[in-house]
């Protein structure tokens, strides 16, 4: 136990924890929104994130090439924004595909929720393995040579050739906060705020809340619930794409199963904050990121998941519906 170490480096551990927590929070939104309207855990959401990370790296490979380089945040800003847009669009497309193929046919037939859950797990495996055999898929079309920069060694680590080196901006305590830290935390908070306003203030947002509260009454009041469910998946996908871009900015490598662990963490964050609650996802994500870092410092890095999950159990014992356990539908306009 190294509590002295934790207190000596409290700022560094907190800020780097917040940066990872912000990414958890953005992915957690997808889980929480789908749960809010369908009472269903979308296990394929981790793959939505994973596709975003690849789209981000592919944009860099396409424009920059495969030569390894390292640049500051400022000089790559144009490429970064392009890659961010590509990641968000790709993730949104994958999320819509999941909704269309894995959910809508089941919802139409009024299948039990458990069936949809299995369908989600199936979709998750399919998408992850599809990314893992993309070299063979390319070979079917005879494109493996043309696309070798994108598809070769499909199951191995895939890295963004451009390393984005953080630049120190100012010092808090003994830690120099970098521009990457600020961009990751800032972008995540801005996205959250925008989404919160969207759900509370717009017509579609009202539709989402209506379906979350009572799908049948919403239908009677003329809300197109199929369209609303689609929009919910779309938004979840966009947020996961943004999370993927921020993750690649911070970490820089991905692989076909990169979504799994991050998905589990994001789902934990969603439950921690209160599943179905947007602000809860933010709080849960940030808290989880920080607690993992503190736990690593005090007990050793091998204990970080233990610390995070013990915290989850303790919070659920006291507040079974999570920290801000309020459903999406009850959010006030």
């Amino acid at each position: 136990m190294h509590f002295d170490f934790l207190f000596q480096h409290i700022f560094e551990l907190t800020i780097t924890g917040l940066a990872l927590g912000a990414i958890y929070a953005l992915v957690a939104l997808g889980y929480t929104m789908v749960y809010g309207i369908l009472q269903l855990i979308n296990f394929a959401h981790s793959e939505v994130f994973m596709f975003g990370t690849f789209a981000f790296a592919w944009v860099f490979v396409f424009i920059h090439g495969t030569t390894s380089a390292s640049q500051g945040l400022g000089s790559t800003i144009g490429l970064l924004i392009l890659a961010l847009v590509a990641a968000m669009l790709t993730s949104a497309a994958v999320a819509l595909l999941i909704e269309r193929v894995a959910y809508r046919p089941l919802l139409k037939k009024d299948a039990p929720k458990l069936i949809a859950l299995i369908s989600a797990i199936g979709a998750s495996f399919t998408l992850s393995e599809l990314m893992g055999v993309r070299d063979k898929v390319a070979a079917w079309f005879g494109l493996e040579d043309n696309l070798s920069n994108y598809v070769s060694n499909a199951r191995d680590i895939y890295a963004n050739p451009v390393t984005i080196n953080p630049k120190g901006l100012f010092t808090i305590g003994d830690y120099t906060v970098t521009d990457v830290d600020l961009v990751v935390i800032g972008a995540a908070l801005a996205m959250m705020l925008a989404l919160d306003i969207f759900v509370r203030r717009t017509r579609f947002g009202r539709g989402i809340r209506a379906v979350a509260q009572d799908p049948e009454s919403a239908l009677l009041m003329g809300v197109n619930s199929t369209r609303i469910i689609q929009i919910t998946f779309l938004i979840g996908g966009l947020m996961a794409g943004a999370a993927a871009a921020l993750y690649m900015l911070k970490i820089g490598t991905t692989r076909q199963n990169a979504g799994f662990i991050l998905g589990v963490k994001a789902f934990t964050a969603a439950v921690l904050g209160g599943i179905g609650n947007l602000r809860g996802a933010l709080l849960g994500g940030l808290l989880l990121g920080v607690v993992e870092n503190w736990g690593s410092a005090v007990f050793g890095t091998q204990w970080k998941d233990v610390v995070a999950f013990v915290l989850l159990v303790l919070i659920l014992l006291v507040r079974p519906s999570g920290l801000l356990g309020e459903a999406l539908g009850k959010a006030r306009a």
Partner: peptide
Amino acid sequence: TDEIQQKQTDFSATVTKVKG
């Protein structure tokens, strides 16, 4: 010393320890 986990990608706590 520190012990990490396979498939972990964020090592900020370990980095803090090494620097410290």
